[in-house]
Design a binder for these strands. Sequence first.
DNA 1: CGAGCGATTGAAAAGACTCAACCACCGTGG
DNA 2: CCACGGTGGTTGAGTCTTTTCAATCGCTCG
Lengths: 230, 230
Amino acid sequence: MLDKSHKHVSCATCQARKKSLFSANFDENLSHLEEHKSCSYFKKNQPLFIEGSFPRGVYCLNQGKVKVFARGDEGKEQIIHIAKEGEIIGFRAMFSGDMYKVSATALEDANICFISKDDFLDMIDTNPTLRNGIMRELSKELGDRAVFITNMAQKSVRERLAAALIILDDVYSGEQINLTREDLANFVGTATETLIRLLKDLKEEGVIDIHTRKLEIIDKDKLMKIAGGR
Amino acid sequence: MLDKSHKHVSCATCQARKKSLFSANFDENLSHLEEHKSCSYFKKNQPLFIEGSFPRGVYCLNQGKVKVFARGDEGKEQIIHIAKEGEIIGFRAMFSGDMYKVSATALEDANICFISKDDFLDMIDTNPTLRNGIMRELSKELGDRAVFITNMAQKSVRERLAAALIILDDVYSGEQINLTREDLANFVGTATETLIRLLKDLKEEGVIDIHTRKLEIIDKDKLMKIAGGR
DNA sequence: CGAGCGATTGAAAAGACTCAACCACCGTGG
DNA sequence: CCACGGTGGTTGAGTCTTTTCAATCGCTCG
């Protein structure tokens, strides 16, 4: 169980950090990072930041998952990304100079560290390894989103659902996927009712198992085949 | 008319450059850029680079438009971006370390300069202004694509078409939009036939005018209203 | 002048959405 | 301990958008 206090997590022992952009060649800067970060406890559904506001810093996920989403004209959420432990969130708007184009909200109770804009930009300037990591990350995401757009435009909802489940299987590595139907629908980009019907189909085909809210992937190969083409 | 020889364009006088990332604080580096670039003439439909290959350098558009697109599982193109004079193309894969996730093809006869990977990365390392510009650009595009994804997921084809026309009106600033119906459909993310029918609707509503292949925007306000919400 | 590509139209089918109702689970307060 | 309220999940029916397929048209280029 997650400690509900505003526990201070040490960067030196943080397992999440070791998988993050703050990992390689970072030992000499660790104390600097340690001094300039602050830790907070976020309750489920608590927002980290909101679309339209200006960035104050970046968020480093120690424990707990976070959804990153944009809102369409009618206010409906489109989930762009689901971030897991070790990911750093919210640095895009740090460089673009404009406000957040997306919002981020904790999907479950979470421990999240915060690094202020000034401190973060300072680190970027003085640490080429971190900088290159950030640039690599921005670039990778840009490529991912080109694929995302293409899938949205060309795949059926069923295909997109299968693709989403494969992604989520990785995000929840090992654990069962644990999202509301609405969040899942907003990730796939469909109506909740449609999503539920298609989930049932997949269950009947023996591809997944449904434990009320949690989803278990039974046959990943078949899922990939469904996600693939027609 | 465009000079069809492999004319060498001087960076010093290149009007396109002045609107590009190679503009501000770049005077001292101009000769360096000049020495390390090469100019080529691209014929209409000639590819600059292709999805799946590894990057050899970046492309700086002097004259002519370029479509950037990904291919879905059935080979159908999804146009992600239409680049105009002054834009630099293909730097994403330069930082991510992987292959191109998209292809780029000249939409019309074009003059395009090339800067090799080594030279470009060298400039990035030694020129903080350029580097910051690149990071800003990566970040901006990332935000744009979050919006793109959301539009794809939540807007009707009609709304997306209106939004696309507004974007294209800017790309073709002043000139009439000049794309095949298929390219336009692949940008909007729909079937060619659907696109044609919706164009006809817009024409009948007095929002656009159709001159065979070229499109003229008559009522931009109305177009924005259509693109907006329901 | 013919070939061929791009544009257009029509009709039918499919996929997805909306609306409305109902169910099930869970935590709370009496 | 149990009834209550609420959120999240499920189902059905009808509708509408969008796609698909097939056929035709028209223009440009060799």
